[in-house]
Nucleic acid binder design. Structure first.
Lengths: 338, 338
DNA sequence: CTTCCGGCGGCAAGCATGTGCCGCCTTTGT
DNA sequence: ACAAAGGCGGCACATGCTTGCCGCCGGAAG
């Protein structure tokens, strides 16, 4: 149901003219996939890219486009899931002025915009079945006609599609036209979920980090412990989740290297420090540590940073306070410096 | 659920050009949160603010805006919960004259109004799923089109969002689009309920009082007894409730100091405010022990007395649990006996 | 009746924590 | 410049916490 958009993954609306990311393929399976993709790229073949949400289907589509003869021509992506059904048709095929209320000016559809190049139908499964028929016709006739248009326009567009569902089943269930299925799925490419290709995690992380950092700024390193955390996680949100997590890490960062405490998985609740009291505390120790941290920081602040005073008010020796502070710092917590 | 609106908390229509309140952060947890907020503010990252209603989510959002590069640009807040579904779309995206009945004049949507600045989607969870798709598209394409509009308008807006639900669960339940979730929740900030940050109560009270009093008028003082009442209350309505209570106090007031009789909690007659641990715990160890005891007893109760289960949920060995229970009993604490 | 499960508490080993002691620094007041 | 105070972190020791192992119980299931 979602588009990857790993191409411009910025969460906010800052669009930089960053080049398409090169697909990462360290895992053997990924390499095989990329090899395949490169081969189909050279052909004019329709391709269906299947993969869980967040796996980077659009990245792969762009890769195919770049490696095809059409590389110089436009690449246009349409996220069928993100566009309200009633607008999708107008968006794909375009319309002439006055074709319907609101159509004040004529508008070229995505097909036209992709003329000579490649059109990606992202999450094609989300397209209403009525539209599927029209789409099929366009593909077969190789021509579009704008809504309210005067006549068909010959088309030279390669069509790629992605989905995160099992298309076969959609077809079986009658939600997807079988003929369209065969038309789009000339060549299937399946992107494995991130958890099934651990070898890609670290290289991906590097790439994503580099892309997130200001140009020319140094790319932070991953400590061994942090890397281990990334490698053992299951990544239900796939590459997108990794990307988000790395962004968080960059924000939390205060040095040149990413430590375990900068890694915050999405596991509900913990997200930010001290949420409400969860019914099932992560663990006794964690909860107590948190509590201790709060008390110490409070005491410290109350005493305007004085370790001696704070220690006294906490009922521990100054030495112990320093000891605890050292550990807090190790854990990546900034301690008020007097 | 409503938006906090702590920014202009005046109940009536006395809106003064009062500056945004500075978030109060005396408790260690709050300080950490504010520190985090300041960091994300500097980025362009999407932020999701989670917290019970009345905790001041909008205040935090404004804080982020003020501390960002966009501070000079507009900050626009839309309360998705307070606006009827059918109007929300027009409100967000704007419309052209004649786009629908009643649209006598064109109208810029909130996105446009926030151009260059920050848009806060308050209670974003309340947005109907159909609109979510449109919102997603706007975020992805970085452009809006007014309803009935002539063409898309490029957009440079940072989007923040708040919710008082567990967004993960909403996603799991299909009430919230997963892709939108990942878009908005790049960086989560959780505001703790007021009851979990007692240290904030008094400073907050001061701030709220100062804001309520006529400019240049003296700010009433809090008597020690009154302060004690505030500190031991559980604040189910969080900051908003505190604010309301203080307003009542101001009305009842007849001198320069707020006394216990001016403090009227909302749940009249019902549960008496139960005293909790004092803001300044006797000692670290004592406080931690208390916390541990609570957690253990909770876990035990949750598991219907099963030591094994409790131990597991606490992340300690069953042996250790028994050890700890023995000590609790020694300390004269009754332990649930299966 | 036998088994199995959950619990209980003794024991001991391994570790982490809490502190005192010390030497070294930096800041501040005289 | 000197001394006193407050901090910092290395070292070492004692104490206490955590846990695995064991044997023993009592209730429930077979």
């Amino acid at each position: 149901m979602m588009s990857e958009n790993s191409t411009d993954p910025q969460p906010a609306l800052e669009r930089s003219p960053r080049p398409d990311p090169e697909p990462v393929a360290s895992a053997a399976s990924s390499q095989r996939l990329l090899e395949l993709a490169a081969r189909v790229a050279a052909t004019e073949c329709g391709v269906l890219i299947v993969g869980e949400s967040g796996t980077g289907k659009e990245v792969l589509a762009r890769f195919i486009h770049r490696n095809s003869k059409r590389a110089a021509a436009p690449f246009v992506a349409v996220n069928c899931a993100a566009i309200p059904e009633n607008m999708l048709e107008a968006m794909l095929f375009g319309y002439e002025r006055g074709a319907f209320t609101g159509a004040h000016v004529s508008h070229a559809g995505k097909f036209e915009q992709a003329q000579g190049g490649t059109l990606l139908l992202d999450e094609v499964t989300e397209m209403p079945i009525g539209l599927q028929a029209k789409l099929l016709r366009v593909l077969q006739e190789r021509e579009v006609e704008r809504i309210g248009g005067r006549g068909p326009l010959p088309l030279d567009v390669r069509v790629l599609a992605t989905t995160n569902r099992r298309l076969r089943e959609e077809v079986a269930a009658g939600r997807f036209r079988e003929d369209l299925y065969y038309r789009l799925n000339v060549f299937p490419l399946a992107i494995a979920p991130l958890r099934a290709r651990r070898d890609d995690v670290l290289p991906l992380a590097m790439q994503l980090l580099a892309a997130r950092v200001r140009p020319a700024a140094p790319v932070p390193a991953l400590s061994a412990e942090a890397a281990h955390l990334l490698l053992t996680y299951t990544w239900p949100g796939n590459v997108r989740e990794l990307d988000n997590l790395l962004q968080r890490a960059l924000i939390l960062l205060n040095g040149p290297v990413i430590l375990p405490q900068h890694i915050q998985f999405e596991l509900a609740g913990d997200a930010a420090p001290q949420a409400q009291q969860p019914a099932t505390p992560a663990s006794l120790a964690a909860s107590l540590d948190e509590r201790e941290r709060d008390l110490i920081l409070d005491a410290l602040r109350a005493g305007k940073g004085s370790r001696r005073e704070a220690a006294e008010s906490l009922g521990i020796s100054a030495r112990t306070l320093r000891y605890k502070l050292a550990r807090l710092r190790e854990a990546g917590i900034e301690v008020p410096t007097a």
